[in-house]
Simulated scan of single mutants.
Amino acid sequence: MRTKWLVLMIALLLGGCDQSAPEEKGFAGMGDQAQSFTPVVPGRVFSFPADHGAHDGFRIEWWYVTANLKDQQGNDFGVQWTLFRSALKPVAEQAGWGNQTIWLGHAAVTSPSVHHAAERYARGGVGQAGVRLAPFEAWIDDWMFASQAQDPLRDMQLSARDKNFAYQLRLTSSRPLVLQGDNGFSQKSEEGQASYYYSQPFFQASGTLQIDGQTYSVSGPAWLDREWSSQPLTANQTGWDWFSLHLDSGEHVMLYRMRQKDGAPYLTGTWIAADGQIQTLHSEQISLVPQDTAKVADRPMPVKWSIRIPDKQLDISVDALNRNAWMDLRIPYWEGPVKIDGSHPGQGYLEMTGY
Results as ranks from 00 to 15, higher is better:
V303Y: 11
L233I: 06
F165A: 13
A11L: 07
R323M: 07
M1W: 00
G15C: 06
V109F: 01
G124M: 02
S306C: 13
S173C: 03
Q200V: 02
V131F: 01
Y349C: 00
Q33I: 11
I60Y: 05
Q128W: 10
V218R: 12
P201T: 07
A118Q: 05
P42G: 02
F58G: 01
A134S: 14
E335R: 01
S174Y: 14
T110N: 05
G213L: 02
T66D: 08
R132M: 12
Q19I: 05
D141S: 08
Y167H: 02
S229T: 00
L153F: 08
Q291W: 08
W334L: 12
R257Y: 02
G346T: 11
E61M: 09
A87E: 04
W223G: 04
A28Y: 02
V114W: 03
L171Y: 00
S283Y: 00
A95K: 11
Q204W: 09
P300R: 05
A54L: 11
L14Q: 13
S159V: 08
P152I: 09
Q180N: 08
V218H: 12
M254L: 15
D225S: 08
D319A: 15
A107W: 00
K4T: 05
T110Q: 09
G124L: 00
D292L: 06
E191H: 00
M9F: 06
G263P: 07
P332G: 12
P112Y: 13
